[in-house]
């Protein structure tokens, strides 16, 4: 576990990077108040999951029965992440037109 840096690259390395990305993305989503910052966090989380899928699906790291499912899922996720970002940016733009800010905390008309 502690000598990861001196070892040849294995599945564990990929999983560590992906877990790191996930944590950073989650922190980014929680702490950022800027809508763009939150969107960046979401992209990080999606990409960390993507990295997981590719690493788990790779036949070089472990005996796998999943064929190319992992890689395929990753491709679809990339497409969906792009469309989700497009929609979220459009909505952010609309928000900006109404409120003159993209601080998500500024929207306080809905309460109760």
């Amino acid at each position: 576990m502690f000598d990861l840096l001196s070892q040849p690259v294995t599945l564990t390395h990929y999983l560590c990077i992906s877990a790191f990305l996930f944590t950073v993305g989650l922190l980014c989503m929680i702490t950022k108040r800027n809508a763009i910052g939150v969107l960046i966090g979401i992209e990080l989380v999606l990409n960390s999951a993507n990295l997981n899928f590719i690493a788990f699906g790779s036949p070089y790291f472990q005996q796998s029965t999943s064929g190319i499912d992992g890689q395929l899922i990753a491709l679809f996720v990339i497409v969906l992440a792009a469309s989700e970002a497009a929609v979220a940016l459009a909505i952010t733009f609309h928000f900006y037109q109404k409120y003159q800010t993209i601080d998500v905390d500024q929207g306080q008309d809905l309460k109760g």
Partner: peptide, 16 residues
């Protein structure tokens, strides 16, 4: 716009 921004952001977090 506020409602849809909240929905989009929270929804994206949940799906991530």
């Amino acid at each position: 716009s506020e409602g849809s921004l909240k929905y989009a952001v929270y929804g994206a977090v949940a799906s991530g």
